[in-house]
Write a protein that binds this DNA or RNA. Sequence first.
DNA 1: ATGTATGTGTTGACATATCAACACGAAGAT
DNA 2: ATCTTCGTGTTGATATGTCAACACATACAT
Lengths: 170, 170
Amino acid sequence: MSKTPPLSDEMFLVTADGSPDDPAAPTLSLRNSPVVLVTFAGNRLTREATRAYQAEFGIGVMDWRMLVMMTRSPGCSVAQAARLTGIDKAAVSRSLHRLESNGLAQSQASGGDERRKSWRLTPQGQDLHSQILPRALERQNALLQGFSEDEITQFTAYLQRFLGNIETSD
Amino acid sequence: MSKTPPLSDEMFLVTADGSPDDPAAPTLSLRNSPVVLVTFAGNRLTREATRAYQAEFGIGVMDWRMLVMMTRSPGCSVAQAARLTGIDKAAVSRSLHRLESNGLAQSQASGGDERRKSWRLTPQGQDLHSQILPRALERQNALLQGFSEDEITQFTAYLQRFLGNIETSD
DNA sequence: ATGTATGTGTTGACATATCAACACGAAGAT
DNA sequence: ATCTTCGTGTTGATATGTCAACACATACAT
C-alpha cells in the first residue's frame, strides 16, 4: 500500500471563524476526530460492560472475555490467549487466576514445557458462559442499533485498519 | 429514525465449521466486532498518547485535553468542560487542579455563584499548548495513515452514531 | 560444558475515566 | 421564613489494561 499525502491540519483543528465562541487560539477538535471519539467510546463501552456483567453475573468484562477465549480455544496458554485476544498477558494472567479461584477455570502443565499452562473452563464456567452469551448478543444489538449489516462491516474494516495504524505508529 | 430489525447473531458469533481450531461451543467473536475493536483501540490510543506526551512534555493525555479545552473555551467551568469534552467531571476537576499546581492554569470565582470557577491557561500553559499542538497533529496524521478524507468523515460519523447508541442503551 | 538469546507466566506500578457520594450554595415553591 | 430541588466542584473507590521487571525454563551456538 502506497503512502497517502498528509491530511490537511484543518481536518483536526478548530480555528477562529468570527463566531462568539471562537477559541483563543487554534486548537485540536475534541469532538470531530476519530482518534478522540474512539477513546471515549472505548472507555464507556468497557465501564458499561463491566457494570452490566458484574450486576447480573458477578464477573467483569475482562473475565467474560477469558470465558470466551477458553470457549474459543480450549487448552490455550496465557501467551496464546494474549495473542488471540490482543490483550496484554498481565491482564490475561490475572483474569485467569480470578476465574480459577472462583471455580470457573482450571489449568494444567502441558506440552513438555513445565512453565506453560493449558487453560480450560470447568463445567461451572461453561454454564456461566452459556448464561452470559445471550445477554452479550443483546448488548451487541443495542449498541449497533440503526446500523445496517453493510455499515457494520465497513465500520469494522475501518477499525481494523485503525488498529493496524496504532500498532505501526508506535 | 425507525427501529431496524435485530441483527443476525451470526454477525457476532464464532461457531464450529469443521476446521481444526473450532470452538468448543458457539461464542462471541472478539476480533470481528466493532464493540470489542473500539474498546481495544481506545485503550491503546490512550496509553500511547499519555506515554508520548509524558515523555516529551511532562503531562498526560488528560491534561493535554484540558489545555485544549481552555484554549477552545477560555473561562469555562468544570461542568462546562465536562459537557464540552464529554469527559467525566471528576477527571476534569483533577486534571485542572494538576495543571494549576504546575502553573499552567488558574481559576477564579465567576458569575455571581461563588462555587463556580472560571478556568484559563496561564501564559506558561499557552506556551505549552502551542508546543504540543504540532505533535498532536502529527499523531493524528500517523494514526489515520492510509485513510482518505472521505473515509475519515465516514468513520467519524459511524463513531458519533455509535457513541449515541452507547448513551441511549444504558 | 558454558554462554547467550528467547520464551513462560507472575507481579508491580500506574494513568485513565467511570460511578457514587458528599457538603454546600442557589433557586424556586409554599 | 422554611423546605425542596437542583447545581457546583471535590473526593473516594475501583476495573481496566498497559508497560516494565523479574525468576527461571528452554533452545541454540560455541
